[in-house]
Design a protein around this nucleic acid. Sequence first.
DNA 1: CGCTGTACTATACACCGTACGTTATAGAGC
DNA 2: GCTCTATAACGTACGGTGTATAGTACAGCG
Lengths: 217, 217
Amino acid sequence: MPASSRARTPRNTLSPELIVRTALDLMEAKGLHAFSLRGVAGELGVGPMALYTYFRNKDDLYDAIRDHLMALVPDVPQDLPWLDQVRFVCRGLRALMLQHPCLAQLLASRPLSGKETARVAEGLLGVLRAAGLEPEAAARTHTTLFTYVLGATTWEIQMASERLDPDAWRRLRTSMESLSAHEFPTVVELAPELARTSGGDEQFDYGLDLLLAGLAS
Amino acid sequence: MPASSRARTPRNTLSPELIVRTALDLMEAKGLHAFSLRGVAGELGVGPMALYTYFRNKDDLYDAIRDHLMALVPDVPQDLPWLDQVRFVCRGLRALMLQHPCLAQLLASRPLSGKETARVAEGLLGVLRAAGLEPEAAARTHTTLFTYVLGATTWEIQMASERLDPDAWRRLRTSMESLSAHEFPTVVELAPELARTSGGDEQFDYGLDLLLAGLAS
DNA sequence: CGCTGTACTATACACCGTACGTTATAGAGC
DNA sequence: GCTCTATAACGTACGGTGTATAGTACAGCG
């Protein structure tokens, strides 16, 4: 035992999977804004640079986390009317985003790539094609549905997290109430409705049903 | 003239408006990811802490920039059928987001507040109420439309910026082409359509028309 | 003239991502 | 058992970040 032998962590403690899991835990525990490579490395008992053996940079790790989460989107059940299949996929994606709020931000800030992401796209596109939509219509509809889910759920998460911070929530309420009822009569009148409809299954389904109704017509 | 007198900037060089305009310029020039208070302060020839006289923190400045941009959303013209009025507002908001890409991220990451934001909401809500929608339906529809515009345009900007970076764009193409045509037949088949429909007026209007068709039915 | 409020400065802290060069070790080949 | 080599993890350092805190010079007013 040479005197210079340090308390070095053994060789293969790390792996992409372990890093992704640890990073995800940290991200969900402290929020994406407070997520850092140094934090992940610390959690793993390792220097920050150790992560660069497995990921080229922070964005690369983000992509891996995104794909890791997309794997949790369930497959489309085959024994449903196609509109219900579409509903199933959209609701499933939303549910996952609500369960892992950071997923919304990851989806909105990085391009789609990765196997699991392709799997989800394949499921929805397959449904649309099987329903008889032409290639272009299928692609357009897929993009429309995806972006609706992304926007609606992003917004929902945003409002929910605002509500959790009592200070921010109170500031928001008072700033709304301070709006002149003369200048913005409808906003003031509908303020309670707007607060109530800024999230929840009903609101999501309302918009989704509008899209599906348009699709069916 | 005491020897200690430094080249101090005169007293009232700063103002909230000037800071917001400078910050906005910087944000659009270098991208939101490279935006920093120090950058703004430097541009203004002032120490970083000078900004704290006018804004409580960085998020507060973000809110001010957002409201500054929302002021550019045009008012609703009164002499149109109401569905066209809705179209006008949604397209106007999208156009502004495309012109100022950072607006999308600001809208998605902070709650709505501010006078100009309220003005835009008032316009759309007024149209919906005037069209005969009940309070709850008006609020739900408003949220649906807003979140669709947010999601669709966020995605559009995301894809466009990806296309501008030739390296990232090539990586995305190759990663798509490397997908097994056996495992993901529809994605591979529709890859060109998906790329083509990931942005543009036609794609946006396609989804918007789906919503409006659902609304009219 | 002196006072006070305030617009701006200076310094400092605790972080961040990551480029670069180094070192210790696991496993391969002898 | 030995050495050799590839590489996993390390340490250091750089240039940045937001912002807390304390200090300073000036405008306006009595």
